[in-house]
């Protein structure tokens, strides 16, 4: 079932009078329960692509449909709402709030979704349990290891039952052991029916996915299915 449809997407910046085409006519379909990696060297447009899919950015031209909703005509408020309801972000630098406990960090998207306190706490602690942090709920980020912080971030991304989880170099700041642990969590999320989009430049990490889309100079140059042995 089609989840995301990008059609003829352009993102054009004007840098010092010079036109930069960060995305140069991109067509892409993403189905439900796909596990996709977006790869490319820096400057290839993969960050812009991720921002576009994550509804943080609007295209200069082109059509973007997300579960039938026309994202390309949405205003700031509608974009915030779709990010809140349908997208879970996992960042390279975790981006947790340093003064809040793990539980509270996971709770924040639910605050913005206007969910009641008791339900919020239940959902947030369930999410933390699902990433194996049941005994770290009241710790602050600086009391957690890098791998644990990223798991808190994953719990935060999961808590709203989003349609996609968008992970931007999720293992970039982790040692390889914790990195692979994090990837195992994504694997499991995928098995449970989640749609996952991974942005990475590491082949090792991209191999976890089922489909790799390669970008260069704002264009999709390769879209391949990963054959697992």
């Amino acid at each position: 079932m089609k989840l995301i449809g990008l059609k003829d997407i352009y993102k054009i910046y004007n840098v010092g009078g010079e036109e930069v085409r960060a995305l140069d006519g991109v067509d892409l379909k993403i189905n439900n329960n796909e596990y996709m990696a977006i790869m490319g060297p820096s400057g290839s447009g993969k960050s812009t692509m991720m921002n576009m899919i994550g509804c943080l950015d609007s295209p200069s031209s082109g059509l973007y449909e997300f579960e039938g909703e026309k994202v390309h005509i949405m205003d700031d408020g509608q974009l915030a709402s779709i990010r809140n309801r349908k997208i879970g972000f996992v960042f390279q630098t975790f981006n947790l709030l340093p003064k809040a406990s793990a539980l509270h960090n996971v709770e924040i998207p639910l605050v913005y979704a206007n969910i009641k306190k008791e339900k919020r706490l239940k959902m947030a602690s369930d999410a933390l349990i699902s990433v194996g942090l049941e005994d770290r709920m009241h710790h602050r980020p600086n009391e957690l290891s890098g791998g644990q912080r990223q798991r808190v971030a994953i719990a935060r991304a999961l808590v709203n039952n989003p349609s996609i989880i968008l992970a931007d170099e999720p293992t970039g700041n982790l040692d390889s052991k914790s990195g692979h642990e994090i990837m195992k969590i994504f694997d499991e999320l995928h098995r449970n029916g989640n749609t996952i989009i991974l942005v990475t430049h590491e082949d090792d990490i991209a191999k976890y996915s089922n489909r790799i889309v390669r970008l260069l100079d704002g264009k999709i140059v390769k879209d391949e299915i990963v054959v697992k042995n």
């Binding site: 408020g77 709402s81 990010r83 309801r85 960042f91 709030l97 924040i108």
Partner: peptide, 16 residues
């Protein structure tokens, strides 16, 4: 600023 970015990414509107 970064916190504001995170909050917006996880669904805070401008008004919030």
């Amino acid at each position: 600023t970064r916190e504001i970015g995170v909050r917006k990414a996880i669904g805070a509107t401008n008004g919030m």
